[in-house]
Design a protein around this nucleic acid. Structure first.
Lengths: 122, 122
DNA sequence: TTGATGGTTGGGTGACCATCAAACTAAGTG
DNA sequence: CACTTAGTTTGATGGTCACCCAACCATCAA
């Protein structure tokens, strides 16, 4: 149940274990529409996705700036987004870098992500 | 809270009040993305929407054929779909005729419905 | 090593949700 | 009229969810 500790290749050429890795995500074919819909049915998570929409860069704290919600609750939202397949999370030292999982979503549900992001543009 | 009793025109040319009417639905501009997503985050409701996708015609009982769920639960799902703006419900005597609220959805969230229906086609 | 920073985890709480059963309304039928 | 049919409503139940708090873990800096 706890995050796997698998190190992804890259940056360990001298045999050192890097802290750069990805948290576990569902395989593309395992992404379920109902789970994606559920992840996108919460206003806070929708706002996070909106902020991520224009190739945003930064860590979780920056991403959730001005959202007055406890950090543990935000951590929960990040997990829902990640486990549903909506986002991908890369660990970089202390930071988590989150981005929209466009490749998988576009493959699995063509047009859905674009329609959602367009609806969030208002 | 109870269904409005507004009679729609049609079939009352002799002055008789018809039972043909629509249940209350949200105005197009009041349809919220989070509510639509929530309505579509349940497998049973997704199946109902899938069945409605090809201009399906019939009453609720026919629509939910082979779905082994209590009729009161189905009634609940119909309400969630209707109140979120995903479907429109017309009352015809004892029957309810449900259809996808394409006009409103396409106006409010262009491309979203098509992407969802396409994803359900598998 | 001490302290600060970024984030996760576990516990607890109130709200909501999907489900069923039973009672109910309303409309068609014999 | 009584009976059936279509669907809603209400109440109960077990489960999930969003949220906060406190403790914790890991990383980075002095």
């Amino acid at each position: 149940m706890q995050p796997s500790d698998v190190r992804y290749p890259g940056g360990d050429e001298k045999g050192q274990v890097t802290t750069m890795r990805e948290l576990p995500h569902p395989a593309t074919e395992d992404i379920r529409l109902s789970a994606v819909m559920h992840a996108l049915s919460d206003e806070v998570r929708l706002e996070l996705v909106r902020r991520l929409s224009n190739d945003w860069e930064g860590n979780c704290t920056l991403l959730s700036e001005d959202i007055e919600i406890h950090k543990s609750t935000l951590s929960h939202h990040y997990r829902v987004l990640r486990e549903s397949g909506v986002t991908r999370t890369r660990v970089d030292g202390r930071d988590r870098h989150i981005r929209i999982n466009r490749e998988a979503l576009d493959e699995r549900f063509p047009g859905l992500l674009d329609a959602v992001l367009k609806s969030l543009d208002d």
